[in-house]
Design a protein around this nucleic acid. Structure first.
Lengths: 112, 112
DNA sequence: AGGTCAATTCGGCAAACACCGAAATATCAA
DNA sequence: TTGATATTTCGGTGTTTGCCGAATTGACCT
């Protein structure tokens, strides 16, 4: 993870509709949801949401997989992991190894 | 942590100079650095940095304490913790307790 | 009080961003 | 192929944001 990626991810999450979408997909789990369903649940126009989804996807916090006609979007938990890793790298100048090791476990089981 | 706080924090970190400042302060540790020193290390104008620092501080990711004339800024690790907690709350609909418990450990020793 | 240094606020400009409706593209089903 | 549904792209508008230099405020020292 580089600084530019991290900025892109933070910027992607720093917007109401996008953060709601992301959290919704976190709750939903690995299977994700099609775009129109997300749009319905959030009460946003499909066109507006589409832009948001592509921003989230480009930032790497969402994955998109086609299922028939629909594109299912799902939260990418490992990107959250990478983001936190990036943030606290070299924490306290490395004196306290505590900080660097902690958040390397994030991953929802890929079940269901 | 509420959605609005999270957005503010993400937006604060979604900018090059601010993210650099934050990471610098993470590396430096709990004692932090005075504003002008940060400005020197990052190569930004003090006035520009000042705005950035206040954004980071208002978002809660930095703390500010006065030491004589100087104001020392330090990274607030517990805000990172809260942010991640907020992100992965109700992960996978709570089916997998794995996700919710993981990131509650972040904290640099308050030493030195 | 007067001088110095740290930090912030202010004014102005250019670039980026969010929103919408309408039109275009893509996939499937009949 | 035609029609229906899913999603994206396009134009246009108003708001937000980042940058800077200059002026201002705040704390300290003599």
């Amino acid at each position: 993870m580089e600084q530019a990626n991290a900025i892109e991810a933070f910027a992607a999450l720093a917007q109401n509709t996008r953060l709601e979408a992301f959290r919704l997909l976190i709750r939903v789990g690995p299977k994700g949801l099609p775009a129109l369903e997300i749009s319905r649940q959030l009460g946003t126009k499909p066109s507006t949401l589409s832009g948001h989804l592509s921003i989230l996807k480009r930032a790497g916090v969402l994955t998109a997989t086609r299922h028939q006609r629909e594109i299912h979007y799902a939260a990418n938990l490992s990107s959250v992991n990478a983001l936190v890793q990036f943030l606290i790298a070299d924490c306290c100048g490395g004196q306290i190894d505590n900080c660097s090791e902690i958040v390397s476990l994030l991953d929802c089981a890929e079940t269901s």
